[in-house]
Design a protein around this nucleic acid. Structure first.
Lengths: 206, 206
DNA sequence: CCTTTATCGAGACTCATTGTCTCGACAAGA
DNA sequence: TCTTGTCGAGACAATGAGTCTCGATAAAGG
């Protein structure tokens, strides 16, 4: 028995023993994202991640219990949640800049496979599905705020959520099916169409 | 050796032996769709399908080599490829009827899980992915034809494919994320918005 | 009626993979 | 130096996919 007999039960001890290896943790996270991107691999499992990271299986199982947990930490780490909030002064300009940025990001060869892999895992793992719901909800909220800044120009009963889902629906639909591009011209036309739908099919006076 | 010595080599024989059991074949197909719908099961594999159909594994492996093949035959069998082509005389009316029918079909509790399951399999199996590409391409073509019937009302440089993908993008996006409904009011508003985008943000004279 | 051919269900079998357990080595504090 | 906890590596059982074999059965022709 240690000499310090009295100890708080709620806080048993600060820490003893060898500390966690940050390099190993980072290797696991990057390996998980790399596997998600490569896509030629089958389902993302912890042994596969461990092998790709050059790490013992036990090390991975010690810190994470599912691949979804690894992805959650990895994608949160990459801080990719930053969404631009342009302010060009006009609804048309803000929307065009936002959509061009979003479509460009989604079509980027470095990130598109990661997004597709996220969908693949979300279809299989409930935890990954929750991660994806949070991810998309953040993006929708940003676009919703952008639109509501110009709500004074809208027709009386415009459904803002419908406009938001048309934009992100098109993004994910084309990203997953891959039948049509997600380029700047698409973003420009999409912005024009959404503005036309929002203002109610009537040309603005000014 | 049989008495009929002479026989064509290109056409060895019509058929001999026990014939294929149609009831068994049907049981396999319906079991596959049922498993796709239930979704609580893991990946769709041939042994799982065989067990669900109450059929020997060898019987399933004899006729199909992948779950994607089973799904292909099952969904083709159900003839769910029939897409309505309304003709109400007006762009607005045609579009509203078409979208209400499509959104209703996608949100139907009997079919929505099947569509989600199809996405799940498409994310895992390349054959199922091809099936889904064909499935969605058929739907896009139908909506595209509907829109082009009223192309005379469109603004000069309207991108019809963009309109189509806004509609189906919203459908799949809401179907998969599940954050907003796919009801008749959504279809009505979506039709209005697409018309406004198509005619170019200017109110029609008549 | 009998033979031939091919399907059917059932189960044994191999193989790959997941997740657990154990081990010796090592690092960081006490 | 001792204790504690992490590390990589590998053994291990459990699970499941895909292959193979078996006896039973059904459809045709002789």
């Amino acid at each position: 028995m240690p000499s310090t007999g009295a100890r708080s039960e709620t806080e048993p001890r600060a820490h003893t023993g060898r500390r966690r290896n940050e390099a190993t943790r980072h290797a696991v996270l990057t390996a998980a994202v790399r596997l998600l991107r490569d896509a030629d691999h089958g389902p993302l499992t912890l042994p596969v991640i461990a092998a790709a990271a050059g790490v013992g299986k036990q090390t991975v199982y010690r810190w994470w219990s599912t691949p979804g947990e690894v992805l959650l930490e990895a994608l949160a780490e990459q801080a990719s949640a930053q969404v631009p909030t342009p302010d060009t002064g006009s609804l048309d300009g803000d929307l065009r800049v936002f959509l061009q940025s979003s479509l460009r990001g989604a079509a980027d060869p470095a990130t598109a496979p990661v997004l597709r892999g996220l969908v693949r895992e979300a279809a299989r793992d409930e935890q990954a599905a929750g991660l994806m719901r949070t991810f998309t909800a953040t993006r929708r909220a940003a676009l919703r705020r952008l639109l509501l800044r110009h709500a004074d120009r809208f027709a009386p009963d415009v459904d803002v959520d419908l406009l938001v889902d048309q934009a992100y629906g098109l993004l994910w639909y084309r990203l997953l099916i891959g039948h049509a591009p997600l380029d700047d011209d698409t973003a420009r036309r999409l912005a024009e169409g959404l503005v036309a739908a929002a203002v109610g099919g009537v040309a603005p006076p000014g």
